[in-house]
Design a protein around this nucleic acid. Structure first.
Ligand SMILES: [Mn+2]
Ligand SMILES: [Mn+2]
Ligand SMILES: [Mn+2]
Ligand SMILES: [Mn+2]
Lengths: 222, 222
DNA sequence: GAGTGAATTTAGCCTGTGCTAAACATTTAG
DNA sequence: CTAAATGTTTAGCACAGGCTAAATTCACTC
């Protein structure tokens, strides 16, 4: 069994390696930052993960998960996303509270528990914030969403996924009607990385900053 | 936050201190045995727990939880018993499978989670194996059940609680209709710690050994 | 009351996971 | 093309929680 610390590193490295900003090599600093740990501690763990064949380490260059590392990461991600959805649907958690709880539970549940909540949820393919849920076999749907921040005035879009990194941001989105499935139209996009004015389905007109717009992933409509 | 290891020691010591066999002082060996750990390791942990004022350690004599230690133990016990019941009622776990799962989850859930499953279960007072569930305030109902093994021929009784220590035993009880709430009559009790013959409500006549009879707690009926 | 066997503690070790400070590589700028 | 800045690793340490082997204490018997 992988320790809790190993599992959390693994998940963090997986997510970083999938982020569009970073190349396929993930840097020590980035991992350390994300884990809230000193760079030296990250290096230390990286060497142990490399020893376990969970990733390949090119010193001073970065880190890349091995195929088996990816598989292990997807198992943890599956736990996390199923749990988030279960907390929301079965226990009435708010959008912004599920991540913290799932971050602890993901290490404690059995495969049996995983299967039972999967069934209770009707075998969902998408999590509480719109992320694809990896299958038990280790496959994950590739998504091709645009960031809301990339759209221009007049375009219409449907919200498909939001970043789950910051609970305060999730609360903000909720209050402004920017939830999964909502259709929006860019009423105006200020230049020089300025704010956006949106027509949001039921909630009317909303002004949001760039950082918010970057955390929202959409399907562009026609 | 207490570490997982500390929480598990605490729970084990609490349960041992409440078992009728042991006096109020719990011995190092007993703790080591229950935790599956060497006596030296138990001593080591005991000294740390004493340092934290969770218990009082009289070297070579044993250990007794402080009032605040008892309170902490009851919190973990509450988590465990609510979880067991939730796994059973909400997710369809079998009687004999809930303990292992709850033993890991009990350390991972938040107070919020605790409150939500408590509510989902309708604020139960008794767990999946009949154990009283401590309240959030740290009170626990005193029970005064007889062991089935103590009864004599002709007595009638109602099963109120069973030991959750051994999954195989729980499966055995289930198969023989010896579940919570079942009424039974002692048809015959063989002398010299021999087996018992029982009339069990729906399941007819059953023969059980002493070890089984000691794991069943009952209310004697008039 | 001394001796013996069992229970307990102590001593010394190991692994996992964190830290800081210092050394070392790489990248960037002049 | 060298030098500073930045990123990364190494060295050395700490703490939690395990272990075994050796020492100690207790309880009991003779
Ligand atoms: Mn999440
Ligand atoms: Mn986690
Ligand atoms: Mn239990
Ligand atoms: Mn436990």
């Amino acid at each position: 069994m992988l320790s809790e610390a190993v599992q959390d590193y693994l998940k963090a490295i997986y997510k970083l390696s999938r982020a569009p900003e970073t190349g396929q090599m993930v840097s020590t600093t980035l991992i350390a930052e994300r884990m809230g740990v000193s760079p030296a501690s990250a290096t230390n763990m990286i060497k142990r993960l490399a020893e376990m064949n969970i990733l390949q380490h090119r010193p001073y260059q970065g880190v890349e998960l091995t195929p088996s590392g990816v598989r292990m990461a997807l198992e943890i991600v599956r736990h996390h996303r199923l749990l988030e959805l279960y907390l929301r649907q079965a226990l009435g958690y708010d959008w912004d509270a599920v991540d913290a709880e799932a971050d602890r539970l993901e290490h404690a549940i059995s495969e049996d528990f995983e299967d039972r909540i999967d069934e209770a949820l009707g075998f969902p393919t998408v999590g509480a914030h719109g992320e694809p849920i990896p299958t038990k076999e280790g496959n994950i749907a590739e998504t091709d969403y645009a960031r809301l921040s990339e759209l221009t005035t007049g375009q219409r879009a449907c919200i498909r996924q939001v970043s789950d990194r910051d609970p305060a941001l999730l609360r903000y989105l909720d209050q402004h009607g920017l939830v999964l499935g909502t259709e929006i139209r860019i009423a105006e996009k200020a230049p020089f990385s300025g704010p956006m004015r949106l027509d949001v389905g039921a909630s009317g007109e909303q002004h949001i900053g760039l950082e918010v717009a970057e955390a929202i992933y959409v399907d562009v409509l026609d």
